[in-house]
Design a protein around this nucleic acid. Structure first.
Lengths: 118, 118
DNA sequence: CGATGATACCTTGTGGTTCTATGTATTGCA
DNA sequence: TGCAATACATAGAACCACAAGGTATCATCG
């Protein structure tokens, strides 16, 4: 009911974020995305197909992605591209991630704080 | 059995990280930690008591924290401080977080990449 | 003196993401 | 023919974090 009042787990959404980001400038297909994430992060982040495909389906279902089937070398691929809604979603996710990363960074670096504040 | 071979969800461990970091220089008690995280992150990150207490117990159980009971103003508090093992754990978690944040950051900022690489 | 709110601790149940594992089918190569 | 890579897909489990609730003490205010 209602619009989902519960806080989504604040950390999640990274697979979504990376997928949207990859698709922002060029259309790609699932299998390609799996490898792109591994390669571009030097294997720091490795999302299996079991992670990527459900994300793609979910994003398409939400209208953030659009797909078209294409056959290359006898291989059937499903290329995804970002819709306007997807662009907005990407912007929002980026923002959220930035806030989070900044907050954590400041805690990790910040001096102990001293309660001196009046 | 063995020691848990499965990849822990790559994003997790942030509550642990922040708790250890807060306790690194001064001992604190649970309720205080809850508020400290909220205040120092300007409420970007808000961990409830249901998050913090289990983390404290888990870390103590693992020997990363040590606790001592203290009564102040008739209020019983349990102060936690970091052990040597806890320090190592903090270092490891920090490193992991850094790698992750760096990887994501590079994906968010990086140019599209062009497959031109020979 | 009773109620309320802040302090301080704790646990249980649930929810949603992510992971591992597996399944199918095609192409190319040895 | 068999194996590896390509390309899609789903199911089951694991897991963390969260909301919600529960206890108890102290201070405050009516």
């Amino acid at each position: 009911m209602a619009t989902r009042e519960t806080n989504p787990n604040f950390m999640n959404g990274v697979p979504e974020l990376l997928v949207l980001r990859l698709l922002q400038h060029e259309e790609m297909y699932g299998y390609e995305i799996v490898q792109a994430i591994r390669e571009r992060t030097d294997a720091v982040i490795v999302f299996g197909e079991g992670v990527v495909y459900p994300v793609l389906h979910g994003l398409e279902h939400d209208g953030a992605l659009r797909s078209r089937r294409k056959t290359v070398n006898g291989r059937s691929r499903i290329y995804y591209s970002v819709t306007a809604a997807g662009s907005r979603r990407l912007a929002a996710l980026s923002q959220t991630w930035n806030n989070l990363a900044t907050a954590i960074q400041s805690m990790l670096m910040g001096g102990h704080h001293a309660k001196t504040a009046s």
